[in-house]
């Protein structure tokens, strides 16, 4: 039972980070109908920038985090302006390929600057685990969970009440109607990309604190695909719920099935879930299926 609880807790924590990264993913999909396959590289870049600021420049963690978020926000704006805006009316495959190309470009850049070896964050959180009943939780996990929850809450409020949030929802709902009501669609797109980049960076910093940073971290960009498919590509609550479900299932598969098949199933398991979901309920738990007119 303790083992089960331990797996559950680590699943919830990893799942919360998935939820955060998936949030950025869904935002972009809602705003511009684009599948952002460069998300993993955004995570990677955020993590590396923060690490460099903390270790090389000796900045305090919170300052470094703030600077990282600023830099990543600018990166998001830049990416939208240079790569995505010229492709505004391009077919789906062009946009997907553009983000794949962007991912390659950023990955190449990261490898050139930071190399391939794993780097570790200095201990920012105390090492002594906190006990809840029988379950041991390391403070990093606890803090990650708290930060993610706070951010998710903040974004929910932002979308619900702020003017920009409402504008973003309007653009996601109907681009032309939003534009005709005087919403500056280009600005909304730019800010969407900036936010997506920022949440990816937060996910990267948290993951980096848990596992250390190396180039394979960008795999999370693909792992969140099952999350958004489960939740529904266009649903923010779906991304959050899906993140937790996939995180927990993946952790359980890693704990219970992996020893039986000799490892590696943990990474593939979410994709098996994807195929099942797509067969049974193609638009996910909360997604909107479309009606089509010719």
């Amino acid at each position: 039972m303790t083992f089960f609880m331990q797996m559950l807790v680590s699943g919830i924590v990893v799942g919360s980070i998935y939820a955060l990264v998936a949030l950025g993913f869904v935002l972009i999909y809602k705003a511009s109908d684009a599948l952002n396959l460069a998300n993993g590289e955004f995570v990677l870049i955020g993590s590396y920038i923060c690490l460099t600021l903390v270790t090389a420049l000796k900045l305090p963690f919170l300052v470094a985090l703030a600077v990282t978020l600023g830099v990543c926000g600018v990166l998001g704006l830049l990416v939208e302006r240079v790569v995505l805006r010229p492709l505004l009316n391009a077919p789906t495959i062009s946009v997907i390929m553009a983000t794949i190309g962007l991912g390659n470009l950023l990955a190449g850049l990261v490898h050139m600057v930071w190399g391939h070896q794993t780097r570790v964050y200095p201990n920012l959180f105390p090492n002594t685990p906190v006990t809840f009943g029988e379950v041991l939780i390391t403070p990093v996990y606890l803090w990650s969970f708290i930060i993610v929850m706070a951010l998710l809450l903040a974004f929910t409020i932002f979308f619900k009440f702020s003017k920009m949030g409402v504008a973003m929802r309007a653009v996601a709902d109907d681009l032309q109607a939003a534009a005709s009501m005087g919403i500056n669609v280009k600005r909304v797109f730019a800010i969407t990309w900036a936010i997506a980049c920022i949440v990816a960076a937060v996910g990267g910093v948290l993951l980096g604190n848990i596992n250390g940073v190396n180039a394979t971290m960008s795999v999370i960009g693909l792992t969140v695909l099952p999350v958004v498919i489960l939740g529904g590509l266009d649903s923010i609550p779906g991304a959050i719920v899906g993140g937790f479900i996939i995180g927990i299932l993946q952790s359980m598969a890693g704990g219970y099935i992996d020893p039986l098949v000799g490892g590696g199933l943990k990474e593939v398991f979410p994709f098996i879930i994807v195929i099942l979901i797509l067969m049974i309920k193609p638009y996910g738990l909360f997604g909107k299926g479309g009606m089509e007119r010719v």
């Binding site: 190309g101 390659n104 190449g108 850049l109």
Partner: peptide, 11 residues
Amino acid sequence: AFQELAFGAAI
């Protein structure tokens, strides 16, 4: 790394 970068840029 440079090849990866150029590949992405070409696309």
